[in-house]
Amino acid sequence: MRRVLLFVNPIFDQRAGHRNAIGRIANLLRSAGLSVEVHETLSAQSAGDQARQGIEDGFDTILVCGGDGTVFNVIQGVAGTEIPVGILPFGTGNVLAQNMDLPRNPVEAARRLLQSTPRRTPLGRITLEVPDLPSDLSPSGLPRRMREKSWYFTMAAGMGLHAALMSASDGWGKRAIGRTSYYLAGMSLLLRHRIQPFEVEVTTTAGEVFCQRVCEAIAVRVPELNRWRPGGRLEEPSLRLATVDATGRWGLASASFQALARTASKNGSSASRGGAPEVRYTDALRVVCRPVADYNYLAAVLAEADGEVLGASHAVLDIAKESFYLLWPS
């Protein structure tokens, strides 16, 4: 670590306390003899391009001042390279930092990263069908065709109500009240959002293939997601898939509560008390999500990766050929 690009989400730079912390981090790195440049991410869509440009400009380390969403966008530009990425937690969830046992205080996290080691980390990949860009619209104003687009993810990706929750959390003041917004959005959606089924075709790490009709599917790469402990493994090239059989809103609420209450997860599933569905866990290599034939969907089922809602209806989740290097505290 000699020449460091410090990426800052401008949302955090607008707050006096965060701005002060970013200045302290830059000074801390410079006092350690490092060359540091602070760049704001221009937009979520451009962060990956900015990261690639930083690598071309000769930076040998990228540190991200932001939340999991900022990390997700930067990863799109560094995947497949050997440039290490460090996380400085400024966001709402900070799930990746949580799983690396980084301090919640970003200045203290920077101090820990000075004694860190880069670790090669496999990446998940989500592929969706998305419409062509607006500039490619037909004269009628409709997209000419659909195309496949892929994103890398580090923590989790999937389809179902949890993706709708990610979309709704901003409306519940995520930046102002933090993680509480997720719980408020979740309770609101359980009360009014129609729970719709979809199908998954799963290829397990043992090479078996099975199909399941579900209402939730989340492929996880980390041991913990806030209070939930699905048992993923960041350094292993596999997905820890959690699914809930197709059910209604109260069945999903019961399964979600039981998943949060457990301290560990096991492969397989069984009926819970009262016959309500449980969360089924499977170690997987590939998951195909698609609509149920002949089902009358009132709205498309949303898909997300690392908390970013990306599309709907169809998704393929697998392990990417590319990886990246993550700075872990010693």
Rank of each mutant, 00 (worst) to 15 (best):
F153N: 07
R145T: 13
P122A: 06
T127V: 11
L142D: 14
M166P: 00
Q115F: 15
E148A: 11
L114K: 11
E108S: 13
S116L: 07
P106V: 06
P143W: 09
R111S: 14
E148T: 12
R125F: 07
S150A: 14
R104V: 11
K149I: 05
I126T: 04
Q115C: 12
L113P: 00
A164C: 10
G158E: 00
I126A: 01
R111C: 09
E108W: 12
K149F: 10
S169G: 04
K149T: 10
G124I: 01
E108T: 10
K149R: 15
V130A: 04
R145F: 11
P118I: 06
A164Q: 10
A110H: 05
L165T: 14
R112Q: 15
P143E: 07
S138Q: 15
P139K: 05
M155V: 09
N105S: 13
P106N: 08
G158A: 02
R111Y: 13
E148M: 12
G158Y: 03
P143F: 06
L128S: 00
P143H: 08
A109E: 01
L123T: 01
R120H: 10
A110M: 04
A157I: 02
W151I: 08
M159V: 05
V130P: 01
P134V: 08
L114G: 04
S167F: 11
R147C: 02
E108C: 08
L137K: 11
E129T: 09
R144V: 11
G158M: 02
L161T: 04
H162D: 15
T127N: 07
P143N: 08
N105T: 08
S167H: 15
R145Y: 13
P122L: 02
T121D: 06
A109Y: 00
P143V: 06
L137W: 10
R120G: 10
Q115R: 15
P131Y: 02
R147P: 00
G141A: 09
G141F: 06
G158H: 05
T121K: 03
A110L: 04
R147G: 02
M146A: 10
L133Q: 13
P134Q: 08
L123M: 07
F153L: 12
P106I: 05
M100K: 03
M146S: 12
R111G: 14
